[in-house]
Design a protein around this nucleic acid. Structure first.
Lengths: 346, 346
DNA sequence: GCTTAGCACTCGGACGTTCCGAGTGCCATC
DNA sequence: GATGGCACTCGGAACGTCCGAGTGCTAAGC
């Protein structure tokens, strides 16, 4: 009973099951995959594989089905990379390069993954915390309110309102924040902050605060606080989904129904946590119960980071049933992550 | 056979069916709703209602089920408005007012509707075409590229790249778009455009183009074109969904499965078209086949416009099975639309 | 003229039984 | 160690029966 053949049997089971969605028995295994031994032999191997926890029987007198552990072994040792076709690669490249802005880039990446994998795509916007500041804009709204617009070097644009009259020691009622004053502030703040990461920003702003006229300090401080808060805020991470309809396709029966799956996907905070955990070099795979979320117990997640110059600024991936085409999904996710990194504003 | 009682019977059928999800027969009708007549009488009325197309039998020896036409009559003439509780209203108000920016407002509105109706929420971002321009920002990116940021009076922020060297008669290679020049342009453009709607913008910009130094004209023209294009572009309309998981709940069986429903909801362009069609004073209802989308043949859409000062700038609504609680859904959609209008930046 | 009681009729779905075949584990043999 | 043979299990399809909800119709009643 060679160890090698046993693995071969596992691979055959996984591939067959992924394709047919039926528990696979010893006979079809010998017929459809050229294993060159008899069903009885296979049965012995299967018994061993079941003993070791790689496969299981839904019920007596049914074929075998891979377990999470079985898929894990398959992904780690048995799956062969299957590169995309040239046509597919070109399609990805052109589709992404036609995007008009960051929203569009992210949306297109999602649609690509959903389409290539036939599953649900998850794409995180470039994280604000990992982005540098490109430009800071102050827009007077009248009534002493300011609109602060933060533009990052990853292309995100965030806006916040600031009540310039608020806070202790706010400017006296007579203070005018005219376009000239604002322009000066804008120039100074931008000069101090350009290109800086969150960790360096607070200090840079502090120096600006000290350098302006005393009556302006509260306002500048307010702006500085708001910017730091905006870039650092956990809640501002954003995720988009695509291809949810794929989950409802007939060939995607989930044991527990898809309610829990959809619910898990809607919990953006939790989902984000899962993705963040998965950040790693290259593509990471979480199978079934490996991701702790109950709703995703019957699903696997294939994810990869992306970002300019090897800097990971966010994560994207594909979610599907544990019984998914791992090689294909991994190839698709990797390809989209790569092209996305290339297209991002640098 | 009074006309009045017949309508009463229809109302009872709709209400009972919505609640129980079972075809309703003549007996339970007399028992559960105080109609004061015998089952046989009801049967006569039912035969008439069926003849007129308001109800139907799934099969012989089953009770009756309302048709789309029946729901329509119910909504138009029989449904009583059921105002939300004070607690609910307060919850809406506080939850919306805690939003930190437009994205957050829209997302929260969606979650509210999804939660109040137990269905899928659809919320459109304030339409760019219906928004006025609040502020225009020009950010130099070096290499003669500009980032043009458009901020509307509805709070949306859009960004576009502009290659200032492109186009016929572009600036000579030596031309520097320094901060000073840009500042001047920014001020002029904003002065010309502030508060203007799309229709008036082109003319206003044209005057600015004429007033600047000849070598700057191509750049200014480029910015003007880009802004007009951005505000006018159909593709830039945005929609978010919330509560998709509600569709998968056990009590939401669709005849055709929910695949077509999810697919229809993912087709943002088509969905947007549907919502736009529904724009009207107050809340509009589309029942079953009334909305032409095949995927939504088994669903109804309840939608309402929202916007400051009675100006409708976008639409939001709820999508659920035709067998939905119309009074409750209508009340929820209307309430959220109202509070949203109040919270929007004015 | 509308309402009602009575009654024959229909039909979907629940329930019980049978039957079949896929698939297994084990054992003796090669 | 691999294989053929064999008894065994069990899920699910197929089929028949039965029951009751619900109907439409007719004739009698208010």
């Amino acid at each position: 009973m060679s160890e090698e053949r046993r693995l071969e049997v596992l691979r055959a089971i996984v591939e067959d099951y992924v394709q047919t969605r039926e528990p696979v028995g010893s006979r079809v295994l010998t017929e459809r995959h050229g294993l060159g031994v008899s069903p009885a032999t296979i049965r012995n191997d299967m018994a061993a594989l079941e003993e070791a926890g790689y496969i299981a029987q839904p019920h007596t007198s049914a074929g075998r089905v891979p377990t999470d552990k079985g898929y894990r072994l398959f992904v780690d040792r048995l799956a062969e990379v299957r590169p995309l076709s040239v046509a597919q690669k070109r399609a990805i490249e052109t589709f992404l390069s036609e995007a008009v802005d960051l929203d569009d880039v992210v949306a297109r990446a999602g649609r690509l993954i959903a389409q290539l994998t036939g599953q649900v795509a998850v794409v995180q916007y470039p994280s604000l915390r990992l982005s540098g500041l490109r430009h800071l804009e102050l827009v007077p709204l009248g009534d002493r309110r300011l609109l602060v617009v933060v533009i990052t070097d990853t292309g995100r644009v965030e806006q916040r309102f600031l009540d310039a009259g608020a806070g202790p020691g706010g400017p006296s009622d007579g203070l005018e924040l005219d376009e000239g004053t604002l322009g000066e502030l804008r120039a100074r703040l931008n000069a101090a902050a350009a290109g800086k990461r969150l960790s360096e920003l607070a200090a840079a702003f502090a120096r600006v605060v000290d350098s302006v006229a005393p009556e302006l300090r509260p306002v500048v401080q307010g702006v500085a606080d708001l910017v730091v808060e905006t870039l650092g805020e956990e809640g501002e991470e954003r995720i988009v989904l695509a291809g949810t309809a794929n989950l409802a396709r007939a060939d995607m029966r989930f044991e527990q129904g898809l309610s829990p799956v959809l619910e898990a996907l809607e919990e953006q905070v939790v989902l984000l946590g899962l993705l963040t955990e998965m950040a790693a070099d290259g593509v990471a795979v979480r199978i079934g119960h490996e991701n702790r979320l109950d709703g995703l117990a019957e699903t696997s997640v294939v994810a990869s980071g992306y970002g300019t110059d090897g800097d990971t600024v966010a994560i994207l991936g594909s979610v599907g049933p544990t019984r998914m085409d791992y090689p294909g999904t991994i190839a698709a996710v990797r390809a989209v992550a790569r092209y996305l990194s290339r297209v991002l504003p640098s």
